[in-house]
Protein backbone atom coordinates (compact mmCIF):
# COMPACT_ATOMS: atom_id res chain seq x y z
CA UNK A 1 0.00 0.00 0.00
CA UNK A 2 1.35 3.34 -0.97
CA UNK A 3 0.87 6.26 1.37
CA UNK A 4 -0.05 9.48 -0.28
CA UNK A 5 0.65 12.82 1.33
CA UNK A 6 -3.03 13.24 2.17
CA UNK A 7 -3.36 9.94 4.02
CA UNK A 8 -0.20 10.71 5.93
CA UNK A 9 -1.55 14.09 6.92
CA UNK A 10 -4.82 12.47 7.99
CA UNK A 11 -2.94 10.00 10.17
CA UNK A 12 -0.95 12.81 11.73
CA UNK A 13 -4.08 14.79 12.39
CA UNK A 14 -5.88 11.82 13.96
CA UNK A 15 -2.86 11.04 16.13
CA UNK A 16 -2.55 14.62 17.32
CA UNK A 17 -6.27 14.89 18.03
CA UNK A 18 -6.10 11.79 20.25
CA UNK A 19 -3.18 13.21 22.25
CA UNK A 20 -4.94 15.58 24.66
CA UNK A 21 -6.30 12.49 26.45
CA UNK A 22 -2.75 11.59 27.47
CA UNK A 23 -0.86 12.96 30.44
CA UNK A 24 1.58 15.81 29.80
CA UNK A 25 3.66 15.49 32.94
CA UNK A 26 4.19 11.95 34.19
CA UNK A 27 5.56 13.07 37.58
CA UNK A 28 1.95 14.05 38.41
CA UNK A 29 1.31 10.30 38.85
CA UNK A 30 2.97 10.59 42.26
CA UNK A 31 -0.14 11.77 44.08
CA UNK A 32 -2.68 10.67 41.51
CA UNK A 33 -5.62 8.46 42.41
CA UNK A 34 -8.41 7.53 40.02
CA UNK A 35 -11.39 7.16 42.33
CA UNK A 36 -12.43 9.30 45.28
CA UNK A 37 -10.40 8.61 48.39
CA UNK A 38 -13.43 7.92 50.58
CA UNK A 39 -14.84 5.45 48.07
CA UNK A 40 -11.53 3.62 47.71
CA UNK A 41 -11.11 3.41 51.47
CA UNK A 42 -14.45 1.74 51.95
CA UNK A 43 -13.76 -0.70 49.09
CA UNK A 44 -10.35 -1.58 50.52
CA UNK A 45 -11.26 -1.77 54.22
CA UNK A 46 -13.08 -4.32 56.40
CA UNK A 47 -13.53 -4.56 60.17
CA UNK A 48 -13.14 -7.82 62.10
CA UNK A 49 -14.40 -8.54 65.63
CA UNK A 50 -11.05 -9.37 67.18
CA UNK A 51 -8.27 -7.48 68.94
CA UNK A 52 -5.50 -10.02 68.31
CA UNK A 53 -3.24 -8.11 65.93
CA UNK A 54 -0.51 -10.76 65.79
CA UNK A 55 -2.96 -13.54 64.93
CA UNK A 56 -4.69 -11.36 62.32
CA UNK A 57 -1.35 -10.54 60.66
CA UNK A 58 -0.46 -14.24 60.62
CA UNK A 59 -3.79 -15.03 59.00
CA UNK A 60 -3.27 -12.24 56.42
CA UNK A 61 0.12 -13.77 55.54
CA UNK A 62 -1.40 -17.27 55.30
CA UNK A 63 -4.23 -15.99 53.07
CA UNK A 64 -1.79 -14.19 50.76
CA UNK A 65 0.22 -17.42 50.50
CA UNK A 66 -2.97 -19.37 49.74
CA UNK A 67 -3.63 -16.92 46.91
CA UNK A 68 -0.15 -17.50 45.44
CA UNK A 69 1.65 -14.44 46.78
CA UNK A 70 5.23 -14.33 48.00
CA UNK A 71 5.62 -12.13 51.08
CA UNK A 72 8.15 -9.29 50.59
CA UNK A 73 7.92 -7.61 53.96
CA UNK A 74 6.00 -7.76 57.24
CA UNK A 75 6.15 -5.43 60.25
CA UNK A 76 4.25 -6.17 63.44
CA UNK A 77 4.53 -2.71 65.04
CA UNK A 78 3.18 -1.01 61.93
CA UNK A 79 0.85 -3.93 61.27
CA UNK A 80 1.75 -4.17 57.61
CA UNK A 81 2.35 -7.00 55.14
CA UNK A 82 3.49 -6.51 51.54
CA UNK A 83 3.46 -9.33 49.02
CA UNK A 84 3.91 -9.91 45.29
CA UNK A 85 2.29 -12.41 42.95
CA UNK A 86 3.94 -13.21 39.63
CA UNK A 87 1.86 -15.16 37.14
CA UNK A 88 2.45 -13.61 33.74
CA UNK A 89 1.62 -10.36 35.49
CA UNK A 90 2.92 -8.57 38.55
CA UNK A 91 0.43 -8.05 41.34
CA UNK A 92 1.67 -6.16 44.40
CA UNK A 93 -0.41 -5.89 47.50
CA UNK A 94 0.01 -4.17 50.87
CA UNK A 95 -2.27 -5.05 53.77
CA UNK A 96 -2.33 -3.08 57.02
CA UNK A 97 -3.99 -4.02 60.29
CA UNK A 98 -4.82 -1.41 62.92
CA UNK A 99 -7.11 -1.16 65.94
CA UNK A 100 -10.57 0.30 65.55
CA UNK A 101 -11.99 1.26 68.95
CA UNK A 102 -11.37 -1.38 71.62
CA UNK A 103 -13.30 -4.27 70.07
CA UNK A 104 -12.30 -4.41 66.43
CA UNK A 105 -9.41 -4.43 64.00
CA UNK A 106 -9.47 -2.66 60.65
CA UNK A 107 -7.85 -4.48 57.74
CA UNK A 108 -6.98 -2.35 54.74
CA UNK A 109 -5.60 -3.70 51.47
CA UNK A 110 -4.33 -1.95 48.37
CA UNK A 111 -2.98 -3.49 45.21
CA UNK A 112 -1.41 -2.64 41.86
CA UNK A 113 -1.63 -4.76 38.72
CA UNK A 114 1.44 -4.17 36.52
CA UNK A 115 1.33 -0.39 36.04
CA UNK A 116 -2.11 0.45 37.38
CA UNK A 117 -3.79 0.65 40.75
CA UNK A 118 -6.63 -1.84 41.23
CA UNK A 119 -9.96 -0.07 41.72
CA UNK A 120 -12.29 -3.01 41.08
CA UNK A 121 -14.29 -3.68 44.29
CA UNK A 122 -14.72 -7.36 43.37
CA UNK A 123 -11.02 -8.09 43.64
CA UNK A 124 -10.86 -6.70 47.16
CA UNK A 125 -14.11 -8.48 48.02
CA UNK A 126 -12.56 -11.81 46.95
CA UNK A 127 -9.53 -11.14 49.11
CA UNK A 128 -11.62 -10.30 52.18
CA UNK A 129 -13.86 -13.32 51.63
CA UNK A 130 -10.78 -15.57 51.62
CA UNK A 131 -9.40 -13.75 54.66
CA UNK A 132 -12.70 -14.01 56.56
CA UNK A 133 -12.82 -17.75 55.94
CA UNK A 134 -9.37 -18.31 57.40
CA UNK A 135 -10.11 -16.02 60.35
CA UNK A 136 -13.40 -17.84 61.07
CA UNK A 137 -14.88 -14.35 61.38
CA UNK A 138 -17.07 -12.32 59.09
CA UNK A 139 -15.76 -9.18 57.46
CA UNK A 140 -17.83 -6.08 58.16
CA UNK A 141 -18.01 -3.29 55.64
CA UNK A 142 -16.89 0.07 56.95
CA UNK A 143 -18.44 3.36 55.96
Amino acid sequence: MKFTKTTMLLFLLAALISLPGCQTNSSKQLLQTSESQVKMRSIQTRAFDTTDKNQTLRTVIATLQDLGFVVDKADETLGSVSATKLDGYQLRMTVTVRPRGSQQLLVRANAQYNLTAINDPEIYQDFFTALGKSMFLSAHSVE
Binding site: L30, L31, T33, Q37, M40, R41, Q44, D72, K73, D75, T77, L78, S80, S82, R92, M93, T94, T96, R98, R108, N110, A111, Q112, A117
Partner: peptide, 16 residues
Protein backbone atom coordinates in the same frame (compact mmCIF):
# COMPACT_ATOMS: atom_id res chain seq x y z
CA UNK B 1 1.00 4.11 56.11
CA UNK B 2 -2.71 4.88 55.64
CA UNK B 3 -1.95 7.96 53.49
CA UNK B 4 0.50 5.92 51.42
CA UNK B 5 -2.23 3.33 50.82
CA UNK B 6 -4.64 6.13 49.89
CA UNK B 7 -2.16 7.18 47.22
CA UNK B 8 -1.76 3.63 45.95
CA UNK B 9 1.74 3.03 47.30
CA UNK B 10 2.85 -0.40 48.48
CA UNK B 11 5.09 -0.64 51.54
CA UNK B 12 8.54 -1.96 50.58
CA UNK B 13 10.39 -1.56 53.82
CA UNK B 14 9.70 -0.36 57.34
CA UNK B 15 11.69 -0.13 60.55
CA UNK B 16 9.31 1.20 63.12
Amino acid sequence: AGVMQDLGFNIDESET
